[in-house]
Design a protein around this nucleic acid. Structure first.
Lengths: 151, 151
DNA sequence: GCAAGGCTTGAAGTGAACTTTAAGCCCGCA
DNA sequence: TGCGGGCTTAAAGTTCACTTCAAGCCTTGC
């Protein structure tokens, strides 16, 4: 049940110094210490670590994650702040997903472009390609790309 | 048709120093200069800038984007490398999308959790919640979360 | 003709998130 | 009893992607 910092780090695919850094930044106030000052990670600490990992994945800076942890320690009075924070995180993630979809369309188009060009040994023929000559699926991608940038 | 560096930056929602930085890093070898050494951006340069923006959005570091630009300058011989690069970028974007979907599930769950807790003024009742008591949609999210971490 | 404003460069500074180093403590084992 | 290994800390170093600064060059308007 109890884990040393190295074991906890391995389980979270992090380094021990990273966990120490998070602790120093105030992200891990819930981690217990042994009599001699050694960090002892318990099962429930991994819930917190997974949540921190999740918030980091939304692009949240350490400073703001600390704010959230602090709110958790303050108790029920900060429930509205925490609710608002997650609503805001939700918006941020949805925005990132849209951005990533737009990026994927361009990458997909380029994949087709370079697959075709590499097969032909040159991309000159592609320069004079007309939209009508594109394969159906590539044309669709191209249309989405053009629709987005408003050209 | 021609743009100064500040105009080009404004159009790309970047700063002029950022464009100079990109140029210094070798990302903009295609940008022309006036007789007195002033950068002059033409329409086709924005295609390049949009592509650089796209590659950055995939999480690609500047160094690797420069590699791609260099390949472009080298001509047809590097078409396979460029094709492979975009295939690899595609994999990276799909992985990011999956990661973001997993993150969104956790955030959605937390949104429900804190909306419920904030309404109740406390999150204690939620601690003893049974999965059966969850609303249908929240239960679905919860199941996806659990399925992912393999618990 | 000259001052203002925008361009140029190289170099130094910034902030975020670690990572590495150095010095020291504690525990288990031969 | 002493040695090795893993823990502790504070502090310094690293990387990335800019950003800011300083000094100077063009061009344009009064």
């Amino acid at each position: 049940m109890p884990y040393t910092i190295s074991e906890a780090a391995a389980r979270m695919h992090l380094s021990a110094p990273t966990l120490r850094y998070y602790d120093k930044e105030g992200l891990l106030p819930f981690v217990d210490r042994s009599a001699s000052g050694v960090r002892v990670f318990k099962e429930s600490d991994f819930e917190w670590l997974r949540l921190i990992e999740c918030l980091k994945a939304t692009g949240m800076p350490i400073r703001d994650i600390k704010q959230f942890i602090d709110w958790c320690l303050e108790g029920d009075a900060t429930l509205p702040q925490r609710r608002d924070m997650f609503r805001e995180r939700r918006r941020a993630v949805l925005a990132q997903m849209e951005r990533l979809q737009a990026t994927l369309d361009i990458i997909d188009y380029k994949c087709w472009y370079y697959e075709t060009a590499a097969k032909a040994g040159s991309d000159l023929p592609l320069q004079s390609f007309k939209p009508e000559d594109l394969p159906e699926d590539v044309r669709k991608i191209r249309e989405r790309i053009l629709a987005r940038c408003g050209c």
